[in-house]
Design a protein around this nucleic acid. Structure first.
Lengths: 112, 112
DNA sequence: TAACATCTACTACGAAACGTCGTAGATGGC
DNA sequence: GCCATCTACGACGTTTCGTAGTAGATGTTA
């Protein structure tokens, strides 16, 4: 349902609909409704283009994932404990990525 | 709704209900239903105690938070990017906790 | 300007989840 | 046997989601 991230630019309902046509048989208005609801939830933004609306993801899906991770962490009670458990669940590869991200953060802080 | 984590041990419906009585006016059966639904979702476990059931959280809330963080990460597409963004959102304190958790992971790997 | 295509706004409907609760029946103590 | 207690199951309103139809506005074109 959220293959809007796949597209590089803002799309009209029609474009999304056509793009989906290969995969799923959905009514034009279905796509419209979904896009509209996503906009109401601030997950997409829209701008006028003639009489049509052009939709674009409000944030890349990675940002959304990061937000969800934050939300989860915020509901944790003891954040240290939650982070320890999270790190414990993560694959070696992901742990490495995390370290990398953290050190990137370091240099950012020093520079800016 | 999920103040079961607050309690140290397994509780009966009655106990949870009484414990909640100060904060919220809920029918006994409401508490029962909620506990039962949580059990169906494997968020609580229950064991017999006489004719009553005794419920306990299946995992500490920190574990649940960690699980949710994992889920979010899994839906990210580019996990590196998601982790970078997550780390970027996190407070300094949390970043420190993360580093700590990661180094704890290191020593664990060496030892066990 | 009238006819037509296109697009939106609004409404709807079924399914699932959730918060809330009641009734009926099983169980156990006195 | 009677009474309190506890569960099982069903129920109802609300929200979210996937799906779609209808009505009406707008732009195009002859």
């Amino acid at each position: 349902m959220e293959q809007l991230w796949a597209a590089p630019t803002a799309l009209t309902v029609r474009e999304v609909h056509e793009q989906l046509a290969g995969t799923r048989e959905l009514a034009y208005t279905t796509v419209m409704t979904v896009l509209d609801r996503l906009a109401k939830k601030k997950l997409t933004e829209r701008e006028r283009d003639g009489k049509a609306w052009r939709y674009r993801a409000a944030a890349p899906r990675e940002e959304l994932a990061a937000d969800l991770m934050r939300d989860a962490l915020d509901r944790a009670g003891d954040r240290r404990e939650a982070l320890v458990r999270f790190v414990g669940q993560v694959s070696d590869e992901e742990a490495a990525l995390l370290r990398e991200a953290l050190s990137r953060l370091d240099s950012q802080e020093q520079t800016g």
